[in-house]
Design a protein around this nucleic acid. Structure first.
Length: 164
DNA sequence: GCCAACGTTGGC
DNA sequence: GCCAACGTTGGC
């Protein structure tokens, strides 16, 4: 039996025009499946690394302002993204089937919606966040690892008390 | 297996 | 709207 692994932290990007933190707040049980990831590196993270209980920074990309707008908690670990074999979905992929799923997703539940979003420009000038994947030049990864220190720093910037 | 062309992401 | 960075595709 493997030892219970420590809680990990992630950053999920979403374009608010497509799915915003307000959409998550309005969803049943404030929970959603995180579908539509069509990048292999991000897929591997969702399939292999993201575990129930992990913390998620919810980031608005292609938006004004660019910002971390809240946190969510993983409530279901990686499982096949069934929207891939739905031709009517936003991200169909005929290469993925129920028998041989290619793409994966997780379920997340809203934890905290920041009263004031932590803007990207703030992150960029905050000491200790230099190594954030988000801030690396050319970074396009939509599912990114966040260190415990980075997690704490962002929550502090948001004025949120430490979450368990 | 290489790599040029092309498409997408996403900040600016 | 621009375009740099990156991922994918497909000819060879």
């Amino acid at each position: 039996m493997p030892a219970k692994s420590a809680r990990r932290f992630w950053l999920f990007k979403s374009e608010p025009e497509v799915f915003s933190i307000d959409d998550l707040a309005r969803a049943p049980q404030q929970t959603t499946f995180w579908d539509g990831v069509r990048n292999y590196q991000a897929r591997n993270t969702l399939r292999d690394d993201v575990q129930v209980g992990d913390g998620v920074l919810f980031y608005h990309s292609n938006a004004e302002p660019l910002a971390v707008v809240g946190t969510a908690r993983v409530v279901r670990a990686g499982y096949p993204d069934h929207t891939a074999w739905d031709p009517k979905s936003e991200h169909p992929d005929p290469g993925s089937t129920p028998e041989n799923p290619v793409w994966y997703m997780v379920d997340i539940a809203l934890e905290t919606r920041f009263e004031s979003p932590v803007e990207r420009v703030t992150l960029a000038r905050t000491k200790g966040l230099e190594k954030m994947v988000l801030l690396q030049r050319g970074s396009r990864l939509s599912i990114q690892p966040v260190t415990p220190e980075q997690w704490r720093t962002v929550l502090k910037l948001a004025g949120v008390k430490e979450l368990r």
